[in-house]
């Protein structure tokens, strides 16, 4: 327990700030002492983690280590699970989003999410993208909405492939295209943060490469948190990496540092494939 406290963010962040001032000027999200319980079972123990803006933070760790659960705290998706209880503070824009006064519906329009398996709605491509803007009343007119759909699809790198068949059902797209559609759908709501829960685990290497390029492109505008099982992916796309094990944040820091010179023995063992 002591070792986790010593490797906690406040000790490391000043140093990293000095190294890369343009990236880590200000944490977009500040998590303090997060504990998550499923019924009586505790899944996450006292996790404190700052998440910087306009960069990619990767959460890695073996299955069942709590990284997805932690990710789902950031947009309060855990609210949809009956037995789940979240304690601790998650500060975003000076507000604790765990506060009962915060409306999770509004929060989720600021924190978008992309899931493990592509999950387009069984509607047309156009309707998938326009759904978010419609329910949040973001578009003033039909032309406005068309523009938003185009912009979102362009940012997700899908526009050229689907511009001639926007009315086709989204299920007719390939797996990789569907996942980019889901990213476009999340972007269309104009979020500030995008959470990705193993977005490439159901995709082939070519589609994975496209999504990774896209993530690298998106980090210029958004704060991105990605859960991944692939160490190479974490190394390729992220600037900061946090290693979870058994519900505990073992180590976090610059991705380069984590992968080349981890401070913790457990991190090294996991990264080199000795367990996990």
């Amino acid at each position: 327990m002591e070792s986790t406290v010593t490797s906690a963010p406040p000790a490391t962040s000043p140093g990293t700030q000095a190294n890369e001032p343009e990236r880590l000027t200000f944490p977009r999200i500040e998590c303090r002492d997060i504990n998550v319980f499923y019924g009586d079972k505790q899944a996450i123990f006292d996790i404190s983690l700052p998440i910087p803006d306009r960069s990619v933070t990767a959460l890695i760790g073996p299955s069942g280590c709590g990284k997805s659960t932690f990710l789902r705290c950031l947009n309060r998706m855990n609210d949809t699970i009956e037995s789940c209880r979240v304690e601790g503070q998650i500060i975003m824009d000076g507000e604790n989003i765990n506060d009962a006064a915060i409306d999770p519906v509004l929060l989720r329009s600021r924190v978008g999410m992309v899931f493990q398996k592509p999950n387009p709605f069984p509607k047309s491509i156009y309707d998938n993208i326009s759904y978010g803007p419609r329910i949040h009343g973001l578009a003033a007119s039909r032309e406005d909405l068309d523009g938003m759909v185009e912009k979102s699809l362009r940012r997700a790198g899908l526009w050229e492939e689907v511009k001639d068949r926007l009315t086709a059902p989204a299920n007719s797209l390939s797996g990789g295209q569907q996942q980019r559609l889901c990213i476009a759908r999340a972007i269309a709501v104009q979020p500030e943060v995008i959470l990705m829960d193993e977005p490439c685990s159901a995709l082939d290497p070519v589609a994975t490469a496209r999504i990774e390029e896209l993530i690298d492109e998106l980090r210029k505008r958004y704060c991105i948190v990605i859960v991944t099982h692939s160490m190479q992916q974490a190394a390729r796309v992220s600037q900061r990496t946090a290693f979870f094990h058994l519900g505990i944040l073992v180590e976090m820091g610059e991705t380069d540092q984590i992968f080349t010179n981890p401070r913790e023995r457990r991190t090294e063992d996991y990264i080199t494939g000795r367990f996990g």
Binding site: M77, T80, S109, G112, G132, I135
Partner: peptide, 12 residues
């Protein structure tokens, strides 16, 4: 996953 997708976009 479809419900999650909608909730994650801020649908009620």
């Amino acid at each position: 996953t479809l419900r999650d997708a909608a909730y994650a976009m801020g649908a009620t």
